[in-house]
Nucleic acid binder design. Structure first.
Lengths: 191, 191, 191, 191
DNA sequence: CATGAATGAGGTTTCATTCAT
DNA sequence: TATGAATGAAACCTCATTCAT
């Protein structure tokens, strides 16, 4: 196992444990066990446990952003772009339950508040596909004339909630229902 | 301070600390300090810390349910009842930021998974206003023909997300915007 | 329940709990519950928990001594007196398992060391039937010419061990076996 | 100090504290101090405090058993074998007062009840020298025709009591007296 | 006299982090 | 570079004792 593999094993182990057992169920010793490395080794890759967790989230966030950009085409209508991105996002979460569970717990913990604050008030800018999309839609009077933060809430709130309930086994989100759900998200924000 | 006051002080202290600092920021010693009681006293009212937290959530949940039932009138149209309940709920959270922050963290932690599972698969029954409302709307073809769990997600996802962002100061939810947001939630579920 | 009853209830409760669960299983709160009194009440009868336990032992010891003196007749031969007292003692323990279990735990704990030291080096004197009996037997060359402490050990060691094993259900000490056991104790000390 | 040393230091510290002050006088913090290690270190070697104490007893028990087997020769007469083993055992306790005090407290606490139950009703088998010895003696009608448990009581009761009184300084067990005491134990069980 | 709510010191155990190897 | 034994602060919880009622 080379250096880069080890780093990835550690991140995977943390992801799995936090996803399945929450932050309380993921002490460094367990992460090390799960990753197949010594506890001390983790500190060669991450200065503190907090930094490990923040890195894990950041990389997951970047992965998702990249996934959304894939095939994104500014020439298509706003609605089509939204549906396409949102469908991809929901499919990603359905296909990656551990990533979703971690993402959820992180965002709703005090860690997440800091992340969101930085994200919303940071320059953020063009790197955020949804921001562009929704601002454009609002300008063109295709989506509601609400503050961006509210549009985000209307778009993501249902999506993340449905993803969670599917992953927890509370509902079975087959292809049909998945598409209908995304459509319903659009219904919430459209003019 | 009489017995009942002390119990309430402890619940309030736990609520405040967890809301503001997360579960990690609320050790028993801090809760006791904040409540102005000895650590041992907490255990006279709650067998374990887990039980304290679960009780706190349960009582909050009951309070909210009661609030929603207030003025509920089954003779009014489904849409009107939904708007009224959802407005009351959003107003409650906006007016009670600590309660909201606690509620959120609880629901997205492993505690919450258990609560939700019991709630969804338990008989639940009449005590749940939204369940009745949405089932009736679905039967009358006023709301979408989706599984109940998905309808819940469409209704609550945006609401809770907006509430959170308002409380964190990411958006200012004035009366107008609040009403518009509730309306948008309806847009998501309506046929 | 009058004052004297209450005191006795407390002693009984302590006896039962310590006998069945050891010192660790007998917090003041449990003793109070078992006795049907308030925790504070215990401190009206006994200054400290240690004093309660020491009193309990002392009263048990006195009861046993009195029991042994009953029918004791210095005119009978040493052997007969020994057999009679030892039989009575073993019967007492067999009939009072809680008393025995408490007695045993007390004597083998640090409490017991102090009691024994006081007892052996104290004036003790005439009040102790066995002391008189064994000293007389030794003088008359009926029992072995050993220090008194060793004679005590030879006489009581087997008796208490057998009583314990009977009470724990490791052997069934019927009347025949009981008498034979006492005889065997005599075999150990006789000249 | 290597790993194995540290484990032994912890066991020694627990032995000493419990022997001298009883179970109440041996909190983990004191054991750690006495052993010269951090409190957390103890938990690297023993999962719980109970396990530490049980291990301590078990290792002591094994040591004693091994000691008794040393030089044991089934070709010698029963009486000679008994005297030899019992003398070795008494010498061991006299020479190891801490071990004895711990052994005694353990056996007479609720821990000991469990140990004895397992020991008596377990297969026990050949590993137990005394069991073989006494059963053989009983078959050959050299020792009394009593249940094994009673024979054990007659053999060990006096021995352990004498050892205790010697260690507490209530009697001085010199070589002569020691041998005489063992002889008296035999008198108790012999036909 | 009797009570039991309140207390906080002290118990066991966990865990993020360090450091000698 | 990698390790994991060692650490002690801090977590949760218990319990002997006090004291206002």
């Amino acid at each position: 196992m080379n250096t880069s593999d080890k780093r990835q094993e550690i991140l995977n182990a943390a992801l799995e444990l936090i996803a399945e057992q929450g932050f309380h169920g993921a002490p460094i010793a367990s992460i090390a066990d799960q990753a197949g490395v010594g506890t001390g080794t983790i500190y060669r890759y991450f200065e503190t446990k907090d930094l490990l967790i923040n890195t894990l989230f950041q990389e997951l966030h970047d992965t998702i952003q990249a996934r959304l950009m894939d095939g994104y085409d500014t020439d298509r209508p706003v609605r089509e772009r939204f549906i396409r991105a949102h469908t991809a996002l929901l499919r990603f979460f359905v296909a990656h339950p551990l990533q979703f569970r971690f993402h959820e717990q992180y965002l709703h913990s005090p860690y997440g508040v800091i992340f969101r604050r930085d994200h919303i008030f940071g320059q953020g800018g063009d790197e955020d596909l949804y921001r562009m999309l929704l601002e454009e839609g609002r300008t063109r009077q295709i989506v509601k004339d609400f503050p961006l933060v509210v549009l985000f809430a209307l778009a993501f709130g249902p999506l993340l909630t449905v993803a969670r309930d599917h992953i927890l086994g509370f509902v079975n989100l087959d292809e049909t229902l998945l598409v209908q759900t995304v459509q319903a998200c659009w219904d919430g924000i459209k003019q």
